[in-house]
Each structure stands twice: as structure tokens, then as C-alpha cells.
């Protein structure tokens, strides 16, 4: 019994770290992993989702609906930005750093001016459950389940739907896709919107557990980039195992040596992974499959 409880507690820690990495990196995996746009405004899409979620939850919407609103709002803003700014940067990925950093400055400071320095949180729902002599937050378990669902949903979307096929084709061979009659501009806009929406979803999901301030997105950004980079270009082959491996590293280091080493370990892992397998996990797995 004691042993089972210990196992559960370890898996809970792992699942929690895994969920955080997967949920926060999904949007970036689409925008950076697939489209090659280095999106430094990723954190601000997350903040946008969180703010809209909190506002609609306080306006009386049930939480799942509110989270959907948050994701939708981020997606719409994402598509608008794609139209006006990002569209011009597809051939200049490095310039996208500057543009998205500019956008992120405007977003954080704009929210500060318009909505003030903080926003009231909405509180974590569902309470806790007692397993053995320790209590666990149920919402964290829901987050873990959501992260699995999210991976599954994205897989189905990109590999089992028409939109998925067209969008992968457009991003890999835009000219060919256009020659075959695909409206590539629309596909780019939708894909970017999807990435922004996923970031918004991350914000919505974590909104009940976090402090709501305009700079809240910055706590996600390092972890997101780390996961996507370790994963490599293919988000399904890469991101899921990357999140799993990093979650193990982070949870183990945090448990044994404290939060500092959890944090540093993550960054060192990235450096080593890039050095050992430059294409990330997905390239490594692909090569290994052949």
C-alpha cells in the first residue's frame, strides 16, 4: 500500500509536469515547429486566453465554456495578426523574432494600461481528493487528462482530416500546394490561428491556478520553447516524447535537488539534445524508423 501510494505520488508529479509542458507548448509547436515562425508573443496569446477566460467565467459562464471563449479570442487575434504582420515574414524567420517581440511589448503594456496591473483570479475548481494520507488537487488531474486529449485531438486533426493534410502540404511545399489549387494564404492564416488558439487554450486551462497579471505569459515561454526544440519539427513524433522526457527530468530533479536544479536541468537538457540530435527527437526517431 505504502509502495503504491509512493508510485501514485511520483506519477502525479510526472503527469503534472507533462501536462504543463504539453499544454503550454502545443500552440508554439504549430507556429514554430510547423511554420518556422519564432513567436516570442506566444506568452501573450496565453495571457490573452487567460484574461478572456477569467472575464467570461466571472460574467457567469461555466468554466469549460469560458476556456473555449479564451481559446477562440486568442485564435481570432492570432488570425488578425497573421493578416497584418506575420504574413510578410514567412521568408524571414529571424525577423519574426523582432516583430513578435514588438507585438508582445504592445500586448503586455497595452493590457496594463487598459485593464490595470492585475486582474482578480477565478479560483481552482473541483477541490481535492485524499489518497492515502495526502491530498491531491483534482483539477491538476483534469489538466493531465486534457493534455492527453489535446495530443490525440491534434493528431486526428493533422493526420485524419482534410484540413490537416492540406495544411501540412502547404507548409512543406507551398508552391505545389498552390499549383494544386489550395488557397495557401487562407491555410497559413488558419494554421497560425490554430496555434494562437492553442496558446489561448493553455492560458484558459491554467488561468484558475495562476496569478493574473499582464506579464503572466512569460512564465510559460522558456518551457514551451525548450519542449518544442527538443521535440523537433514534427510535433507528434517529437513534442509528446519530448514533453515526457523533460517531465521526467524536471520532476526527478525537482524532487531530489529542489526547484533550482529542475529549472537548470531543463535548460541543460536542451543544449545536450540539440548537440546530440540536431533535428530534435522527431528527426532522430524518423531516422531510427528507417
Amino acid at each position: 500500500m505504502e509502495f503504491l501510494l509512493a508510485i501514485f505520488s511520483i506519477s502525479y508529479q510526472f503527469g503534472d509536469a507533462f501536462a504543463f509542458l504539453v499544454i503550454s507548448c502545443a500552440g508554439l509547436a504549430v507556429i514554430f515547429g510547423m511554420m518556422g515562425i519564432i513567436n516570442l508573443a506566444h506568452g501573450e496569446f496565453i495571457m490573452c486566453g487567460a484574461y478572456v477566460t477569467a472575464a467570461s467565467a466571472r460574467a457567469g459562464l461555466p468554466l469549460p465554456m469560458a476556456i473555449a471563449c479564451g481559446a477562440l479570442a486568442a485564435a481570432i487575434i492570432g488570425m488578425a495578426l497573421e493578416r497584418t504582420v506575420i504574413r510578410h515574414l514567412y521568408h524571414r524567420p529571424l525577423d519574426s523574432i523582432i516583430a513578435t517581440w514588438g507585438i508582445s511589448l504592445i500586448a503586455t503594456q497595452g493590457v496594463l494600461i487598459l485593464l490595470g496591473p492585475t486582474m482578480q483570479g477565478i479560483g481552482t475548481p473541483l477541490g481535492s481528493t485524499l489518497i492515502g494520507d495526502r491530498s491531491y488537487s483534482i483539477y491538476r488531474l483534469v489538466l493531465f487528462a486534457t493534455s492527453i486529449g489535446l495530443l490525440l485531438g491534434l493528431y486526428l486533426l493533422f493526420y485524419r482530416t482534410r484540413f490537416g493534410v492540406i495544411s501540412r502540404a502547404t507548409i512543406q511545399r507551398p508552391d505545389t500546394a498552390r499549383a494544386l489549387g489550395v488557397d495557401t494564404r487562407r491555410v497559413y492564416a488558419l494554421t497560425f490561428g490554430l496555434g494562437a488558439g492553442l496558446a489561448g487554450l493553455a492560458g484558459g486551462l491554467y488561468a484558475p491556478t495562476m496569478t493574473m497579471v499582464p506579464t503572466m505569459g512569460s512564465t510559460f515561454i522558456v518551457e514551451s520553447f525548450v519542449t518544442v526544440v527538443v521535440g523537433g519539427a514534427d510535433i507528434f513524433l517529437g513534442a509528446a516524447p519530448a514533453a515526457a522526457i523533460l517531465a521526467v527530468i524536471k520532476a526527478a530533479l525537482t524532487a531530489w535537488y529542489g526547484q533550482l536544479f529542475g529549472q537548470i536541468g531543463l535548460l541543460v537538457a536542451v543544449i545536450i539534445v540539440i548537440r546530440v540530435m540536431p533535428g530534435g527527437l522527431s528527426a532522430f526517431i524518423k531516422r531510427w524508423q528507417k
Binding site: 481535492s128 491530498s135 491556478t209
Partner: peptide, 8 residues
Amino acid sequence: EQANSASV
């Protein structure tokens, strides 16, 4: 928030 939801 997180400590409260885990009923510390």
C-alpha cells in the same frame, strides 16, 4: 491557489 486546491 495551487496549495489551496490541494487542500494543504
